[in-house]
Amino acid sequence: MDRFDLSFLHLRFLDIVDIILVAIIIYYLYNLIRGTIAVNIVLGLIIIYLVYIVTEQLHMRLLSNILGGFVSVGFLALIIVFQQEIRRFLLLIGKNAALHRNKIWETFIPGNKEAENINIPAIKHIIEACKTMQHSRTGALIVFAKYFDDQYYQNTGEAIDGFISKRLIESIFKKNSPLHDGAMVISEGKIKCASCILPVSDNIKLPAQYGLRHRAGIGITELSDAVAVIVSEETGQLAYAKQGRVRMDVTYEDLEKLLIRDI
């Protein structure tokens, strides 16, 4: 059998690299929108574009003009509709770039590492507070943000900027406290703010029993590189959210290992 003649493709080495890079970008974008309503939006946009092509070929002027107006502003529409996914994609790129930068920095200048965001004694205080709140069935949502955005968090909560302590965490989430609703944000080794309103996850695959506290904890990890610890008010179970995924019924030992690893 004669071999296929592929000379008409005129592929260069850079063309192959171009195809691989586009494939990688599509793969990352798919991982970002997988399991969310964004998948349905993408399918809807594809259907509209296919209908526009069909109406254009059949010379259905009225419908093609209407759909053509939508297609002509398609790029702007994509930015508006997928602003959260675009934010997550840019955060993913920035996170990977920062990770490689730190590795290079540590390679050429040994002993010069960035300061830890939180120390072991502070983690002990957090775990002890979680134990107390778990036994008393006190609901809590604690967010650990590597990069604290003042406008993003403090606009919806109360600024604290206090040192991490077991009693302070317990007093914030005490049921009669005015700050118990919402999330407490820890960053740069301090409790930055409390009673913050966080975006709720729109993942359609989350179990129905997840309440607003769990969905908010998952939602903030979808939009940033933060991690979240959730104490369930109904069951007292500990949950750990990272990158849009949640781990239920976490033990204190596992929680300590996860916090040391991720923050």
Rank of each mutant, 00 (worst) to 15 (best):
Q57H: 09
A77E: 06
L62A: 09
L32P: 00
A23T: 15
Y49A: 07
M60R: 02
S64G: 02
F70M: 13
A38M: 04
I53L: 14
I80G: 00
R61V: 15
D18V: 06
Y49C: 05
D18M: 11
R61T: 15
V39S: 01
N31H: 11
R12V: 01
T36D: 01
F82G: 03
L50C: 07
Q83W: 14
I26Q: 03
I66E: 04
L58C: 07
L58A: 10
F13C: 15
R12P: 01
Q83P: 06
V39D: 01
V17T: 09
R12E: 10
L50M: 09
H10W: 04
Y30I: 13
H59A: 13
R34K: 12
N40V: 00
N40Q: 05
D15K: 07
Y30H: 12
R12C: 07
L32F: 06
V39M: 04
G35R: 05
N40T: 01
I16W: 04
Y49V: 08
I47L: 15
G68Q: 02
G74I: 10
V51H: 05
V73C: 11
I46H: 11
V54R: 04
L76D: 01
R12F: 00
I41L: 10
I53H: 05
H10P: 07
Q83F: 14
V51F: 13
L67G: 01
L11T: 11
I47P: 02
G44D: 04
N31R: 10
Y52P: 00
R61Q: 09
Y52Q: 06
L76Q: 03
L78P: 00
V22S: 11
V73E: 05
I24M: 11
I41Y: 03
V42E: 02
Y49P: 00
V22P: 03
L62I: 14
I46G: 09
I53N: 03
V81F: 14
E85D: 13
I48W: 11
L29F: 06
F82M: 10
L62D: 01
L63R: 00
Q57F: 11
F13N: 15
N40R: 10
M60E: 04
V51A: 13
I48Y: 09
L78A: 12
Y52K: 03
N31F: 12
V22T: 12
V17I: 09
I24D: 09
G44H: 04
L32V: 13
S64W: 04
Y52G: 01
V51D: 03
L43Q: 04
E85W: 09
L78F: 12
G69T: 02
I33H: 01
I20A: 13
L9H: 10
M60P: 00
V51G: 01
G74Q: 03
L67I: 11
R12D: 08
I19A: 15
V71K: 01
I47A: 14
D15P: 14
I26S: 08
G68Y: 03
Y49G: 00
E85T: 05
F70I: 14
H10A: 15
I53F: 14
V54S: 09
R34A: 13
R61C: 06
N65M: 12
I46E: 12
